[in-house]
Amino acid sequence: MNDTLHVVLRLVAVLVAFLVLPLLVGQTEHKVMAHMQGRLGPMYAGGFHGWAQLVADGVKFAQKEDVVPADADRRIFQLAPAVALLPYLLVLIVIPVGPHGFVGEAVDAGLFFVLAVMGVGVLGSLMAGWASANKFSLLGGLRTAAQLMAYELPMLLAAASVAMAAGTLSLPGIVESYHWWWTLWQLMGGLVFFTAGLAELQRPPFDMPVADSEIIFGAYTEYTGLRFALFLLAEYAGIVVLCGLTTVLFLGGWHGPWAGSVGWLWTLLKTAVLAFIVIWLRVSYPRLREDQLMKFAWTVLIPISLVQIALTGVVKVVTS
């Protein structure tokens, strides 16, 4: 009984984090982006500097009519947002936050679990793109698929490099075996992982699949109301997950001064800094063209990640 209660409590905590952290990232994006462009951003909702803007947005989305286009494939169209969102919730469960089992649920092959489940999330975009019966959605879906196939590989290779270094696939295990010099050792891998992750989330500058100036909003063009909000939530949950994973794999998770007591704070802090970088990149860079995207993945990221794997292997053999 006590065990069950424990598990339920952990899951509830993860759920709360899942609902709160993406909103935090979204609000930060509103404000940071505004100030980077010399604006103020939302100032009214909630009173103090518009802190409740996203809550207001949520209320607005809930009030909107839920339209399904007449020619659309109803079932798949309606199912797509859930398929896009749920995987991130699952991933959040296994990301370790602090030492001593401060994690939703430790999974043995956690690294593979995370990568596998994140890959499923993209199916949501594909389903949405196809089922909308809209040429822009279809183009968006195609671009999503092409981008996913190109960037999945470097991401996997980079993650595999860390797993090799740590000698385990479990996420808490990887953090436990972390030393500070790993960040330098795995620097290339970390950059590749983060970049490829951005591309998988379709964040600028890799947002060709939702390029508004060309294909309106890609696969999500036909969505309204809550379903649209779910897609947006999936994007921000994706940012949280990506930053959390990068923290855990490459930045040493909870390691830092007084890790024993405030380790979880370190994890959150590193994640927040990474999330800030995600926003910063969005504001600073223009969108890559489709051919540039593909070229970048195949001729830059994959070679770098292969070099990283070779480096990891050599260092591992030499030091052991």
């Binding site: 092959a109 596998a116 890959g119 499923v120 698929a145 092409a146 196939m149």
Partner: peptide, 21 residues
Amino acid sequence: EFIAWVQVLIYVGSVVVLLLF
């Protein structure tokens, strides 16, 4: 467990995406 996640990663994450593409 490992085989299960690899199954999802390769087949659902890549092969089906390729199919849909």
